[in-house]
Design a protein around this nucleic acid. Structure first.
Ligand SMILES: [Mn+2]
Ligand SMILES: [Mn+2]
Ligand SMILES: [Zn+2]
Ligand SMILES: [Zn+2]
Lengths: 151, 151
DNA sequence: TTGACAAATAAGAGTTACTCCTAAATAGTA
DNA sequence: TACTATTTAGGAGTAACTCTTATTTGTCAA
């Protein structure tokens, strides 16, 4: 099995789809076939696709979908907590449907985003004065450099 | 003194300018008045300007400079290590001329980037298997949320 | 000091990645 | 089954770069 595809089996995919459907209803959002298709393609991959990349994949199962719908839907997924925008410095937004605590390495050459998980980086403690002054919604450890394929 | 301006005195600014001039020569880059002007405006501020924001400021002292030159120069500063692109998720690139170890909080509402420094976040240790597989050029802890002014 | 010339710049065109607009379609509901 | 607020497709519009080309300039060698 190629590490870049099918990282989830169809049973887990269906479970996640049911969970997502419930989340949509909970948030008062309509459960449209486009939303389901975009969500399913996003959680199926670990390559942190851009809206454009994901649009191409979704079109294989939903040929008439528009890029605008993909963009809008991805922002919605981010807002309701079904996905998030990967941190980085520049370039097109990249999305992630993996909600388990993990970190990212981004190659500055090929722009590939690679998952890793390092226990000390999970749930890092934010200084109290920051928590008092701001609402901290997200905290992350982020690495950047040259990947194995590029160096 | 407003925390958003003049965070550096003219003696330190001149020191940094001399250092930058030397770095340019070391890297075989010409020392042009445009480069100096852009570098000086960047290190003078702690507001992490975008290319557009910085271009407006530089035009106050160098009215004929083009936005393209500002963009190109900022990428050059990033390459030679005189500045870097702030991490974040989306929107226009933001630049930072402060090379002391510190971290960023970005407000998802107003897009303000705020510096902070938390000792345990300085020089975090990257897992050995990451260092073996990739060239890690940069590591950072990044927070996102709602700032004091927006909440 | 003075050329020679590679590097850098200004201005404007071109491209990418969104973001907005509007008419048509549809999921939820009564 | 009918209603209606949401959502969608498709196209236009915009922001943030990125490229092209003619011109200028910093550096270095004579
Ligand atoms: Mn991930
Ligand atoms: Mn900073
Ligand atoms: Zn790479
Ligand atoms: Zn704010």
């Amino acid at each position: 099995m190629n590490a870049q595809e099918s990282i989830i089996n169809s049973v887990d995919l269906d479970k996640k789809t049911v969970w997502f459907t419930g989340l949509c209803r909970e948030k008062g959002l309509k459960v449209t076939p486009q939303r389901i298709a975009i969500y399913r393609e996003l959680v199926k991959t670990n390559e942190h696709p851009s809206a454009e990349m994901l649009c191409e994949k979704v079109r294989q199962v939903f040929p008439s979908i528009s890029l605008d719908t993909v963009n809008r839907t991805l922002l919605t997924l981010n807002e309701i907590g079904a996905a998030f925008i990967v941190e980085g410095s520049g370039d097109a937004k990249r999305f992630d449907g993996g909600l388990d605590e993990h970190q990212h390495f981004k190659c500055v050459e090929c722009k590939r985003v690679i998952d890793f998980s390092h226990e000390p980086f999970n749930n890092i403690e934010v200084p109290q004065e920051m928590e008092e002054m701001f609402v901290v919604l997200r905290k992350s450890v982020y690495l950047e450099g040259i990947c194995d394929l590029c160096r």
